[in-house]
Design a protein around this nucleic acid. Structure first.
Lengths: 204, 204
DNA sequence: CCGCCGTTTGGACGAATGTCAAGATTTTCT
DNA sequence: AGAAAATCTTGACATTCGTCCAAACGGCGG
């Protein structure tokens, strides 16, 4: 194949992949809005400028579309969390910085986090989502563990729990805060910040 | 109204309520099996010895049926947790007893707990479930808080966290253990026990 | 300008859904 | 036993769902 032909082909698949991403993004918006149980392909299509038939041109079926959406969500998630926490001098400062980060994440996109918990639960019923969800969970756990280790380093000691438990505890606080935030509590964000700040010293 | 008539009427409503409970119980089995998103009225009816039309004789609509099921689930939940923990002499013993209790609860009915998390997430999308779910959440939080206080008493000190945070942390461990248990991990139960035992001392 | 090929539309399909009502059946009361 | 009330079945309804397909559109090379 000539390089020109290769380039041509690449731009074609790029365009195809770009539209796939565009449609997956629209699917995420719809899912975050309505939840998995109430989101149909036609509803997703209404969140785009295209008709519902197009979805089957870019995705094999509904599961494929949602799987791709979840993978895309994961990419955005990880990328956001990689752009980590600002430098902090003391352990307390670091804990407060993490607490602010999590609270801000919750405040900025509560429905997206609601969708995450929805999809994670759905993965317990639909095996098709299980692998992607597990991958996201692992990267979230790694993110939390990095923070716990950094906090312990700043405090001059070591964590007293395993990464899985640390993630479970943080996630418990986050999910409860999300529940309260979405049901109208206006202290949920502050409570989350305080809860996270107080959690760090419990783990070393 | 004569007392005979009153009795007659009572037996009638009792029978009505009894069948309602029977159908709600079948609905719970179906929901635990398939999850909210995949459970239809006809599927629920297949879990009973009756036809699908009967569901509309005992329940106004689908939301009413599921709401009643959730309320019934709550009643069973609370009753189970009220029959609490055996007496323990030391704080460590008590923590171990609680850890065993939670791990046993998870092991005995994992799909029911999966359903609980499904319904709790659905309540963030469907306002109709919100109140019942919040009630269950409150009673679970109260159950956890009783245990944390008992542990602190046995240790001769006081909890250093609020009830909401204690519940969130326990729930985080439990949910993560459920995820792993249902996806095939055979260390999930032991990990949960250890995680709970280690969590108690972190909270005082 | 034509024809090709990737893209997009819009409608059609069968299946499944929640809901309802009319009739059959069973229970209860007199 | 017979009437009345309850319980239950059955089939139908309008929608909505995922999926598929024939046709139309649009840009680009020949």
């Amino acid at each position: 194949m000539t390089s020109a032909a290769a380039e041509k082909h690449r731009t074609r698949v790029d365009k195809f992949a770009a539209r796939q991403r565009e449609l997956a993004a629209a699917a995420l918006v719809a899912l975050a809005d309505l939840g998995y149980a109430r989101t149909s392909l036609r509803t997703i299509a209404e969140h785009t400028e295209f008709s519902h038939g197009l979805l089957h041109y870019y995705f094999a079926d509904k599961v494929d579309l949602i799987t791709c959406s979840v993978q895309q969500y994961k990419a955005a998630c990880v990328q956001r969390y990689e752009s980590g926490i600002g430098t902090a001098a003391t352990a307390q400062e670091f804990a407060a910085s993490c607490a602010d980060g999590l609270a801000t994440a919750l405040a900025e996109a509560p429905t997206m986090h609601r969708l995450w918990y929805d999809l994670r639960t759905q993965s317990l019923f639909e095996k098709a989502f299980r692998d992607d969800v597990a991958e996201i969970d692992d990267s979230l756990q790694a993110m939390i563990w990095r923070n716990v280790r950094t906090y312990a380093d700043l405090a001059g000691t070591r964590p007293t729990c395993c990464p899985a438990d640390a993630y479970a505890l943080f996630d418990g606080l986050f999910q409860q805060a999300l529940l309260r935030h979405l049901t109208g509590s206006n202290t949920a964000l502050d409570d989350l910040r305080r809860g996270i700040r107080e959690l760090f010293p419990r783990l070393i």
